[in-house]
């Protein structure tokens, strides 16, 4: 009686492929911001994107409503900024708006950040709360929008294109 061993190999090959792909699904890293090459700390690969410092942002005087020229140059430009996100809105799986501040707001001994150190960030793609934990880099176009607040004539806003975890530069 003859048998066809090749048929068995086909079956076992097929099974093996299915199992291998399932196993790989677990072993391969999930797509995340970590996969993208991290920008150089301090400046971007893309020359048009500049890193902004919080000290410069603070120079916008919200009481007198004046803005120094070196800061005014950044308004309307794409910038990169490190900081911490504070989510707004109800759906924590798809956060489209959040506030961006320079520190983690845990310390009760100092006042909270003044309005010129808070950015209202809009993200076109809803972010998951887990992606907004810890220190982050954000990149996007900075704008100064008129606000009806007594604290200032305008508030910082940013349309975020990229949000990625912050890594300490090697010292």
């Amino acid at each position: 009686m003859q048998h066809k061993p090749s048929k068995n190999f086909v079956w076992s090959g097929g099974l093996g492929l299915i199992l291998l792909s399932t196993a790989l699904a677990y072993l391969l890293p999930q797509k995340s911001f970590m996969d993208e090459p991290l920008p150089q700390q301090g400046f971007s690969q893309d020359a048009s994107v500049q890193v902004l410092s919080w000290k410069l942002l603070q120079q916008y005087d919200f009481k007198k409503k004046t803005i120094p020229p070196e800061l005014r140059d950044f308004v309307g430009q794409k910038i990169r900024l490190p900081g911490f996100a504070v989510p707004l809105g109800g759906d924590l799986n798809s956060i489209r708006d959040f506030l961006f501040v320079p520190d983690q707001l845990a310390c009760i001994h100092v006042p909270p950040p003044p309005p010129n150190l808070v950015l209202l960030v809009h993200s076109g793609k809803g972010q998951n709360i887990n992606d907004l934990r810890g220190a982050l880099w954000i990149e996007g176009v900075l704008t100064l929008s008129p606000s009806t607040s007594q604290y200032g004539a305008a508030a910082w806003e940013l349309e975020a294109d990229q949000i990625m975890p912050y890594k300490q530069p090697p010292s």
């Binding site: 506030l99 009806t148 607040s149 508030a155």
Partner: peptide, 8 residues
């Protein structure tokens, strides 16, 4: 009136 004042 302005969301950035929430901390204050």
């Amino acid at each position: 009136r302005s969301r950035t004042t929430v901390f204050h």
